[in-house]
Design a protein around this nucleic acid. Structure first.
Lengths: 114, 114
DNA sequence: TGCATATATAAGCACATGCTTATATACTAA
DNA sequence: TTAGTATATAAGCATGTGCTTATATATGCA
């Protein structure tokens, strides 16, 4: 028995959340920092309600944290999640989203607050 | 850009398949070898059609291979799958199923053919 | 050949999922 | 206070999912 194993039920529920292209991309975008909803809407080319609903699922599962700053709400990975090791592993195996964030930055649509 | 990254769409589809407790357990049971359908039915305590349907999804995705030997069909992981690295990573993070297979063995219900 | 075992498949159904549109809430700035 | 921007939520709907029951197919054995 793997001493530090993530219980089957929990692992399955996390993998299920990752098993959607939109949410998986969101996780990828959060690899190196925070993003706010409007950035996701921009980068994913999806409606705002749809993005919000995906973020809600991730937040309900505790996989992401949110932080309000002025009118924006910034999302980030919750590294304290019991199953964060799954996120960590998967994030290494999918295409890096750094370039997309960079494009956002140089087009002046990147939101930065701290 | 990660040179060996698994495309987002493919990764999501594999993770979606892993995002079901039954299928995730099947993958865990295949970690160290093959199993036939009746063993899964026994170990998972599920109906045979239900198990077969899960195996079909895994097979359709190319994640498992099948081999017929006499009246049994043995399933095993397809290590050549493009996204096998995801399986490999996840399998290390979930509870090991070795003990369950051992129990099957000592109760004389383990099927062995080669 | 005929029956038992192992497996696959089909049909039906309840429920989950992910989108859309519409609307509510929260904050900022004029 | 009013308008604008950012976000969340609700309702509705089409489609997907995973089970069940019933049946088909394949193999082995008497």
């Amino acid at each position: 028995m793997n001493r530090t194993a993530i219980e089957m039920e929990l692992a399955a529920s996390v993998l299920k959340l990752l098993g959607d292209k939109t949410r998986l991309t969101i996780i990828g975008l959060l690899k190196d920092g925070e993003c706010c909803v409007c950035e996701f809407v921009d980068l994913l080319n999806m409606s705002q309600p749809s993005v919000s609903q995906h973020l809600r699922k991730l937040r309900d599962a505790g996989l992401v944290k949110e932080r309000r700053n002025s009118q924006w709400i910034f999302y980030s990975l919750n590294k304290d999640h019991e199953a964060f090791s799954i996120i960590e592993s998967v994030i290494q195996l999918i295409p890096d989203q750094k370039e997309k964030l960079h494009q956002l930055e140089i087009s002046g649509r990147r939101i930065r607050c701290d």
